[in-house]
Write a protein that binds this DNA or RNA. Sequence first.
DNA 1: AACATACTTGACTATTTTAGTCAAGTATCG
DNA 2: CGATACTTGACTAAAATAGTCAAGTATGTT
Lengths: 153, 153
Amino acid sequence: MKITSSTEYATRLIVNLGRTFGAAAVSTEKLSESENVPADYVNQLLLRLKRAGLVQSHRGSGGGYSLSRSPEKITLGEVLRAVEGTIFEDVCGKYNDGRKDCHHQGHCGISPVWQKLAALIEQYFDSITLAHLMEEKAGSCGKVEAMLGRIPQ
Amino acid sequence: MKITSSTEYATRLIVNLGRTFGAAAVSTEKLSESENVPADYVNQLLLRLKRAGLVQSHRGSGGGYSLSRSPEKITLGEVLRAVEGTIFEDVCGKYNDGRKDCHHQGHCGISPVWQKLAALIEQYFDSITLAHLMEEKAGSCGKVEAMLGRIPQ
DNA sequence: AACATACTTGACTATTTTAGTCAAGTATCG
DNA sequence: CGATACTTGACTAAAATAGTCAAGTATGTT
């Protein structure tokens, strides 16, 4: 498991837009330079964010992208779903040698574990907003810290 | 993000071994049949579990694999590290256009979020034992349930 | 000892996904 | 009208995943 480049880049890009929220739009070329992401890739990623309604675009000279909503109202979960399609792919029924039903259906101790992991990860990402990411200091995600602290040993 | 076939298969295989813990060893061919995993792939996966010390092998006729320890003493985290190498790959410094240091180092609101996700996932897997997986009823992982219930909204 | 069973090793291949590129557009501003 | 900048969709290269294969070595049984 890992964070893909699309996820990492899209997150940097939208956080960057968050910093100028309320001010002028930022062109993809400027974003490409300041975030060190290939320009065509920036285009592709911002388009996905736009289609998901997270950012808006302005064409023509002086155009570019800007957030559709304030940073407190955009979650990392929304960003990930916009760029990746789904955050955590459902595995049930996938590695079952052609059969459609879950291999360990009925009496299954395994698939609930994958499903709960999926829920855990989605809730984690949904609990983080762009505003949190913009705080720009290590360990700034209080909710996450609290959650980790409470995992039973 | 997803569960890979290696992870899913290895988990099914070692849970299968857990069910006959204390009894005779199980051959890779039998495991292949009962879990619907290609025989050569079973070999490969069990070898990794063996090298990690989670299972032991017995050669010759009547041989096969068996758990090295009781199911309560083997965690899913250990299984995943054995088959995947690492559970969650560190992304810091990876998408940085050749630079070695983290792109958003110093004032970074993003990388702590990836790192905490990694910690969250590892702790999740480390909290689940084979014994939990063998309980064979949905929603059997009490600790996980508790953890999910406590995620702040 | 011979033979069957079954693990061991490492390399090899095919498929899919990821990461990024490219070209030919369309809309807007000055 | 021309420069700026988003839009669309297809395309390619590299890497990871998902297996496969062949040639072993060790053990138990007859």
